[in-house]
């Protein structure tokens, strides 16, 4: 039946690797003290997410995840890190409010994770009776140019406004040498 021996195990191991990459990258992104390591953690997390998208039958989204998040977003954040020296000072307040806020953050995030997991495990999800298309790249292109063409144009306008606004904001206050 299987064209290759133990292909099930290879696929399952790759899936486990993708999940481990996502979770580990998220941990690196929020727990390290230096911001540049945090950006690298975000990159690792995005690689794992691209793998998960690949398992969800959308290789186009996996490609876009790597292209946009790692290629554009993380590189831009690295530029800002180089310009603004954002390293957190090794402050001596590891007692009092710092620990309190850490405990509060841990409790809140654990509650969110547990509640959403319970909600998604117990939810009455039903499989659809019929699908109108197969979700391929061709179907995405057709729906981008027919059903969602207005939103597509609007998002290009939003990107243009964002670029011009970023230039204007970053330019004011700049003195001539």
């Amino acid at each position: 039946m299987n064209p290759f021996p133990a292909s099930d195990y290879i696929v399952a191991a790759f899936f486990l690797f993708c999940i481990a990459t996502t979770v580990g990258g998220a941990f690196v992104a929020i727990l390290t003290a230096r911001v540049i390591r945090s950006v690298c953690g975000l990159m690792i997390c995005c690689v794992g997410l691209a793998g998960l998208y690949f398992f969800l039958n959308s290789p186009f989204l996996a490609l876009m995840e790597i292209l946009i998040y790692i290629g554009a977003v993380c590189v831009t954040i690295v530029f800002a890190v180089m310009l603004a020296e954002p390293d957190e000072p090794p402050s001596g307040q590891n007692h009092g409010p710092g620990v309190l806020w850490g405990v509060v953050a841990l409790v809140v995030s654990a509650a969110i994770c547990w509640g959403l997991s319970q909600l998604s495990l117990r939810g009455p999800w039903v499989a659809p009776a019929a699908r109108v298309n197969d979700g391929s790249i061709k179907a995405i292109g057709v729906s981008l140019l027919t059903t969602y063409s207005m939103a597509f144009e609007l998002i290009s306008l939003v990107l243009l406004v964002a670029i011009v606004g970023a230039l204007v904001i970053a330019r004011t206050g700049r003195t001539k040498p």
């Binding site: 929020i30 953050a105 841990l106």
Partner: peptide, 20 residues
């Protein structure tokens, strides 16, 4: 869905905990 909930929880944790 569980991985997505975990990512949301880590994001909220970092949003509260980070200082820069």
């Amino acid at each position: 869905l569980i991985v997505a909930a975990f990512l949301l929880a880590t994001g909220v944790f970092g949003l509260i905990r980070r200082r820069t």
